[in-house]
Simulated assay, not measured.
Amino acid sequence: MAVTERQAVRDEAPPALRLRLLGGFHLSRGEDDGGGQVDVSVSGQQLLALLGLRGPATRSVLAGTLWPDVTEERARACLRTAIWRLNTASSAVADPRPGVLALSGRVRLDVQDFTVTARRILTASAEGTGAACASLMGMGELLPGWYQDWVVFERERLHQLRLHALEALSARLVVREQYAPALEAALECTRIDPLRESAHRAVVTVHLAENNLAEAMRHFKAFRGLLRTELGIEPSEQFRTMVRHALT
């Protein structure tokens, strides 16, 4: 049986590895982190993270991205070593077609789970909002302490996706009159990004929906003070109009 055929058969098996990138790198056996940690070299961690975040890629792209400061020949040698070490320990890397590498189908990735949840919130109904709220509230930052350009880009992308999902979740919960989790989601947005006006509008929206005018005004004034102190600007006309209409 060819190598790719053997890999395809192996990838049909249920996920046997759990790769966590949110909150820090962690590879473990089994469906959760209790299955036993797999030790991975630094280069192996970077390879798995890149494949998890960017998807399948050619060997030349992977080598050039991970080892940009060495010759192409040396970068390819480093990549071969990283692959050998990874597959000796975990069989986490697959070769779906010649010259291309990808995460094995045996790997379950937390970033993928988060992305599916966030996009479902942004595009679908409010079903399962309790689990979605818990998922969005509990996630950590993508690979803290990693400063490669490709990590920084993906970190910001996921950061923005999370904020938009939390705001959408808050708005959807307000419609369902589930004000406590709606407020929790909105406040989480303000914790993540204290200067994000749309997040503060979401908080005020929840307070107004509950007819808590005093709470709404208190939050608005606190945000206005923060903007003046940090940026020397005022809240948008949209936000000020929203508050004025609530008081009339």
Results as ranks from 00 to 15, higher is better:
residue 213 L to Q: 05
residue 77 A to L: 14
residue 128 G to T: 02
residue 89 A to C: 12
residue 139 M to E: 01
residue 139 M to A: 04
residue 72 E to L: 15
residue 183 L to Q: 00
residue 137 M to F: 13
residue 213 L to D: 10
residue 104 S to D: 02
residue 131 A to F: 11
residue 81 T to V: 13
residue 193 D to G: 01
residue 105 G to F: 13
residue 178 Q to C: 01
residue 193 D to C: 14
residue 166 L to E: 03
residue 165 A to E: 06
residue 95 D to C: 09
residue 90 S to W: 02
residue 193 D to F: 09
residue 211 N to L: 09
residue 151 V to Q: 03
residue 78 C to K: 12
residue 118 A to D: 05
residue 99 G to P: 00
residue 174 V to G: 02
residue 208 L to S: 06
residue 149 D to C: 01
residue 171 A to L: 14
residue 181 P to H: 07
residue 200 H to E: 00
residue 101 L to I: 09
residue 112 Q to F: 06
residue 206 V to D: 07
residue 116 V to Y: 00
residue 171 A to I: 12
residue 138 G to V: 04
residue 123 T to A: 15
residue 129 T to D: 11
residue 128 G to A: 03
residue 189 C to E: 03
residue 160 Q to Y: 01
residue 204 V to A: 13
residue 192 I to C: 03
residue 151 V to P: 05
residue 150 W to S: 01
residue 179 Y to N: 09
residue 130 G to F: 08
residue 164 H to Q: 14
residue 111 V to D: 01
residue 182 A to D: 04
residue 86 L to C: 08
residue 160 Q to I: 10
residue 208 L to W: 06
residue 209 A to M: 11
residue 116 V to A: 05
residue 170 S to V: 04
residue 212 N to Y: 02
residue 155 R to C: 03
residue 86 L to S: 09
residue 144 P to N: 07
residue 141 E to Q: 06
residue 211 N to M: 10
residue 113 D to Y: 07
residue 178 Q to D: 04
residue 111 V to E: 00
residue 161 L to A: 01
residue 140 G to D: 03
residue 122 L to W: 09
residue 192 I to N: 00
residue 193 D to S: 11
residue 101 L to H: 10
residue 82 A to L: 12
residue 84 W to K: 10
residue 210 E to C: 13
residue 90 S to R: 01
residue 107 V to A: 02
residue 93 V to F: 03
residue 161 L to M: 11
residue 176 R to G: 03
residue 95 D to V: 15
residue 135 S to P: 04
residue 208 L to N: 09
